[in-house]
Write a protein that binds this DNA or RNA. Structure first.
Lengths: 261, 261
DNA sequence: CGTAATCAAATTGGATCCAATTTGGCAAGA
DNA sequence: TCTTGCCAAATTGGATCCAATTTGATTACG
C-alpha cells in the first residue's frame, strides 16, 4: 500500500518491491505507464509510440511492447486503425460509468453471498472489519493514519464479499475497473482541510457496511444487492472533485494500493 | 463470422482474413491458442511454455509471449508463482458464473437505455432486428442458415442496447466474458437433431427480445433490467450440454464470431 | 497551381541473441 | 538411506537486428 500526495513525481528510481521475484523492468514499465496516463503526463488522445517511451523509461522496446498490450486490455490505451496506440481519455463521465458498473457487480456479489450463505471465517472477517471501523469512528474524529486503516479494512470488506459470492467471474469483470483511478475500492481520496466533513462521509460509508452485512447475514439478497449498489455511489464524489483535467487539488490526499498485476 | 462444426481441426493454414492489415502471425497465434484452450487441446491445469508452443505454431517466441500476456488478461491463462503459465480450467460452473455476470451487466445496459432513452437510429435498428426474427420464426421452422441469421441479428440486438446505454464501462467489463466459450452472445450452439425443440427455444428468446424492447421503448427501466437478466439465462443451457470435459456432442452445431481483439 | 507518384523516414512486428533465474538431478557426506 | 549442496539444463525476460508496412514529403507533370 502507498500513502502519498497525488502530484508527486513518478520518476523516482523505483526501489520498492524487488523481492517479488517478478521481472523488474516489465512491472516497473507497466506501473509507470499506468500512472503517467492516470495523472495526465501522457495527455488523453496523445499518440504513444514504442521508441520514445522506451527511451524515456530507459529500457528497450520489448517491455514497452508488452506493456502496451496489457494497457490496451485494461482500457487505458486504444489502438489506432493502422498503427500505434493513443491514450484513452479518462473523463469524469468514464469514471462515473465504471463506478456504476462496479456497483452492479458488487451488488451481484452481495446478493449471491446472501443467497448462498457466507462461510464462518468470511463472516468473522467481515465482523472484524466492522469492529475496526467502529473503533475508528467512536473517537469522533479521523487522523491521516486512520484513513489508511479505513482504506485497508474497506478493501478487505469488499473483497471478502466478492469472494463469498463464490462467483469467480465477478472478480474478473471487476479487474478492469481496478486500473481506472478512483473507480475501484483500491483507491480513496480525502480532503485534509475538511476532516470533519470527511468524518461524516466515511462514517456514513461505514454505516452502509453495517447494514450490508446485516442483509447478507440474514439472507436478504435483494436488500443486500440494492444497498451495495447504493454504497458504490460513495465513490461518485471523486468525479465531482476531479476536473476535466483530472487535477486533484493539493489539499487532497490519495491512498491507493500499489498495482501488482 | 464462422459457421462450422465444433470439433474441426484448427491446424488449417489460416488463409482467411489477410486483408485486415493487422499483423498476421500475432493475431493467428492468439486466436489459435484461444481455440486450443477452449476445446481442451491444451488441457486445464497444463503448464504451457513459450518454446514448445512457438515450435508447434511455427513462429518465434515473440508473438507467443505477447499472446500469453493477452490470454492472461482474458483469464484463459494463469501465471504461476515463479515461472510459466497454466491453462485455467473452464468448467461449466465458470461459464455459468460468467453468464450470470453478463446478465447483470446487460441488465444494467437495458435499464440505462430505458432511463436515458434511446436514439432514433438505435430504435430503428432494434425494430429491424425484431422484424428479421419475426420473419424467421413465422415460417414455423428453422434451417441452418436461419440460425446464422439469428446469430447475426441477436448479436446486433444486444450490442445496440449496450451502446444505447451510453455507459462505456459496460462494454469493457463484458469484453472479458467474450473470450469464454458460450458466455457471450457471440457464440450459440444448437442441436441439429432436434430442430423442433430448438425452434421453440430460440423463439422464446426472440419473444424475450420483444418484451425487452417494449420495456426500453416505454422507459420501464426496472422491467427492462429484470427481463434482460432473465434473458441471459437462455445461455445457461450450454452449461448443461457441455460435460466436464467440454466435449460438444457431434450433433450440435456451433456458430461463433471470429475473435478479432 | 494543383495533383499524383515515387522515394525516404519512421514505426511496428518478428526473430535471434544474451543474461538472469529457477528447476531438477546427481553426488557426496552424515 | 536421507539430506544437502552444487552444477547443468531449461525457461523466461530484455536487447538488438531485420523485414514489412505506412506515413509524409518532395518533385514532376498536367
Amino acid at each position: 500500500m502507498l500513502f502519498k500526495q497525488f502530484d508527486l513525481n513518478y520518476d523516482r528510481p523505483a526501489v520498492t518491491k524487488t523481492e517479488t521475484g517478478m521481472s523488474k523492468h516489465g512491472q516497473r514499465v507497466l506501473i509507470t505507464l499506468r500512472k503517467m496516463i492516470a495523472n495526465g503526463e501522457l495527455p488523453p488522445g496523445e499518440r504513444v509510440a514504442e521508441i520514445p517511451i522506451a527511451e524515456r523509461l530507459g529500457v528497450s522496446r520489448t517491455p514497452v511492447r508488452i506493456a502496451f498490450r496489457t494497457l490496451e486490455q485494461e482500457g487505458l490505451l486504444r489502438k489506432g486503425d493502422r498503427r500505434g496506440y493513443t491514450v484513452r481519455a479518462i473523463t469524469p463521465t468514464e469514471i462515473a460509468d465504471a463506478i456504476e458498473v462496479r456497483g452492479v457487480l458488487e451488488g451481484l456479489a452481495a446478493r449471491l453471498a446472501s443467497e448462498r450463505g457466507i462461510s464462518l471465517p468470511a463472516r468473522s472477517h467481515l465482523i472484524e472489519c466492522l469492529s475496526t471501523g467502529d473503533a475508528l469512528f467512536s473517537k469522533g474524529f479521523l487522523t491521516d493514519e486512520d484513513m489508511e486503516t479505513y482504506h485497508d479494512f474497506n478493501m478487505r470488506f469488499h473483497n471478502t464479499i466478492i469472494e463469498a459470492s463464490r462467483n469467480v467471474a465477478i472478480e474478473d469483470a471487476l479487474s478492469r475497473n481496478d486500473h481506472l483511478p478512483f473507480a475501484s475500492v483500491s483507491s480513496i481520496a480525502f480532503n485534509r482541510d475538511d476532516m470533519t466533513g470527511e468524518f461524516r462521509r466515511f462514517n456514513f460509508s461505514h454505516m452502509q457496511h453495517h447494514i450490508i452485512f446485516d442483509a447478507i447475514d440474514n439472507g436478504q439478497g435483494a436488500r443486500a444487492e440494492a444497498l451495495m449498489r447504493e454504497h458504490a455511489n460513495a465513490a461518485l464524489r471523486y468525479t465531482q472533485i476531479l476536473g476535466p483535467t483530472q487535477d486533484m487539488p493539493d489539499n487532497f490526499t490519495v491512498i491507493e494500493r500499489e498495482d501488482t498485476a
